[in-house]
Design a protein around this nucleic acid. Sequence first.
DNA 1: CAACGATTAGAATGTCAACTCTAAAAATGG
DNA 2: CCATTTTTAGAGTTGACATTCTAATCGTTG
Lengths: 179, 179
Amino acid sequence: MYEQGVAGTSTEDILAAAQVTSPSQLYHYFADKKSLVQAVIEYQTEHVLGFQRPLLQRLDSFEALEAWRDAIVQAQHARRCKGGCPIGSLAAELSDADPQARTRLAAGYAQWEGAIRDGLVSMQERGELDEEADADDLSLALLTALQGGLLMTQTRRDTVALEAVLNAMIDRIRCHAPT
Amino acid sequence: MYEQGVAGTSTEDILAAAQVTSPSQLYHYFADKKSLVQAVIEYQTEHVLGFQRPLLQRLDSFEALEAWRDAIVQAQHARRCKGGCPIGSLAAELSDADPQARTRLAAGYAQWEGAIRDGLVSMQERGELDEEADADDLSLALLTALQGGLLMTQTRRDTVALEAVLNAMIDRIRCHAPT
DNA sequence: CAACGATTAGAATGTCAACTCTAAAAATGG
DNA sequence: CCATTTTTAGAGTTGACATTCTAATCGTTG
């Protein structure tokens, strides 16, 4: 579903990917495709946060913030700029069509945003960032910029736009740095 | 297709929207659905640029930049935060699946980016913006941030994230303002 | 080992979507 | 106004896809 989209993934594709022979297995564990998609959203949210949290939890300096940026850019290169964001791709396809999916995707974004905010707050606690900086606002803007960067990466097949937004946002955060 | 996605739009939906009774009409003017989609991409690109250009061509001040931001936020509210970006929605759905579509969408983004850059350059010419500011870089980052903002708007059903990125980017550009 | 629930096969069904075909109507133009 | 091309109707074909059904197998427990 990440590679071909939800609509572009048939039950047969799912069976093949799961190395399973009969659709009855699929329908034994999932009521229908929609509830399987819900599970996919949860799975991808875990996947993304599993990748992001280790990087965000040690946000103690601007170097760490740049390392986070580099890891993301690096990951896109590794998949040859295909695929975009696992959450963002689902969000674009499902937000308008499936209200339950939308709710779950919004929750995933909220978690992600929270992880970024925690990182920025820890930078504030260490004195790397001005106490007056609005961590809520900056984390939301950073995540949003990242979403745009990943979409542009997917369409342009290069990470130039992704690097441009992330650098712009990091520079903006740096405006709030002390000293 | 903007409302339901390309995959979610059937030939019958198209006939109904075009107030046409027979599929033979559709296939008289378009070879297949894929080439119709190509036409949709071109149509939406024109549509977006038609909305953006008037705002971007008179970018002579930060007030004008803020007016651009406000018009976008306003437009999202008008459609109750549904739909996202007409180009971005297609980009997310088609970039990986249809190489021709991807190329055309990337070209659409390039045009849009160019329009933003022209606006920033005109600000430089009027002395509102430092000559040393990298208009290429800023315009790409601004468009990318906007794409993320529109996607987040669609999923969150509010424009908070959109406003946060756009404000962040405008503030960053303001760092390059003289005086 | 018997009985029962959980799991799996695999064929089958019904729906819907993309596209085609034949022929009729409508426009065009000499 | 006739001939030719363009456009439209509308039924029909084909294939794919989500889902279901019956029955078989497997695992577990008394």
